[in-house]
Computed example of a mutant assay.
Amino acid sequence: MSSKASRIALSASAAALGSLAAYWTLLATRQGHILFNARKLPVVHLSEHFSTYSHTVPGGMVRGYVYHPLGEEALQDLFIYFAGRGEDVRATAQALHWLPEGFGLAAFNYRGVADSQGDPSEIASVADAIQFASHLRRAFPRARLHVVGRSLGTGVAIQLAAQRDFASLQLVTPYDSMLEVAKKRFPLVPLALLLRHRFDSLKHSQEVAAKTQVLLAEHDVVVLPERSQKLIDAWPTPVQVQTVADSDHHNIMGLEATWLHLVDFALTTVLPETKAA
């Protein structure tokens, strides 16, 4: 190889390494925003059947919504829903017409997502979840509280259920750890060194006592079946597993069958009351 060709090759290699280093730096410094897909989204208007919720965090407010169409006194079962990556819970709320009488849903947007402010992180999402659940238990003392997590939100749901008692825990397209899921998307990144928000559901699941159901998508290329299966195999108590027909990772919460599975399972549970709210 000529000296000129060698210089060109070295320059190209240096540029490639520089780009890779910059990419790694971006992931290291902005990984919370990347992981949660934190961004503002178009306003979604909700009906008068929703009440609002907020609490202060560094940088602004976390905002949430509670759906109870027949009023607080008629609410018997309340789903506390933790959304997937980049999901605006106001948009997901458009599917709630499938909930039967006596059921409601409460959810908040993660920090930095949609109308919530602040910097998203694993620690922050779990802390906000605990504060939200405590508020709901005070606001709706007669309702049975059921935790539901989807995709990214299953990591939040599992950690919440590991620290508090609920009538049931339901996981939609869950994973064993975010590290294992991310390895597929970023194969050239040393994630074991860089990733701070690991959502190690495999570890936290060992503290969960709630009756549990897992809903899997029939076709899922985001959370691969082996990631869900590893969590299911390690679950410390019996777990009911259902596959939602004609579903994929993205459309599963927009299908009637998903909500029917959630409701049917919730109706079979008995509320434990041993851990503090």
Rank of each mutant, 00 (worst) to 15 (best):
D246F: 07
D233L: 07
D248T: 10
A127E: 14
H261R: 15
I123V: 08
V126H: 06
P174G: 10
A5C: 01
P187F: 07
P69N: 08
V89I: 15
Y110K: 03
N251S: 09
A234Q: 11
F82C: 07
P174L: 14
T212Q: 10
G86R: 05
T243R: 14
G59Q: 09
L27K: 01
D115W: 11
H219C: 02
K203R: 15
V223D: 08
A133E: 09
M61A: 09
L160P: 02
L75M: 06
L271G: 03
V239P: 07
T258E: 08
F140R: 05
S201W: 04
V222E: 14
Y23D: 04
L271W: 11
R164V: 09
P272Y: 08
A5F: 12
D246M: 11
T92D: 10
V43Q: 14
V222T: 15
E48F: 01
I80L: 15
L202Y: 10
P190S: 00
Y81R: 08
P174D: 13
L179F: 05
A143V: 03
A83N: 13
S201F: 06
N251C: 05
R111F: 00
R196A: 13
A234E: 10
A107D: 05
K40N: 08
E73C: 01
A162D: 02
F108E: 06
A129Y: 11
E180K: 15
S177R: 10
E72V: 12
H68R: 08
K230I: 01
A22L: 15
A12G: 03
A83Y: 00
E273G: 11
P100H: 12
Q242I: 10
V214C: 04
Q76C: 02
A83L: 03
L195C: 01
Q94A: 12
I80Y: 03
R144G: 11
R90M: 08
A91H: 06
L224V: 09
T92M: 12
R63D: 05
A217R: 09
M253V: 04
Q117G: 09
K211Q: 15
R185G: 06
R185V: 00
M178H: 05
L70S: 14
F79H: 05
P69I: 05
P187W: 10
A127W: 11
T154A: 04
T268Q: 14
H249K: 02
P225W: 14
L191I: 00
K275I: 06
S125R: 04
P190D: 04
Q240E: 15
L78C: 02
I8K: 12
Q206C: 05
A114S: 15
Y65F: 15
P238H: 02
F79T: 03
R142D: 11
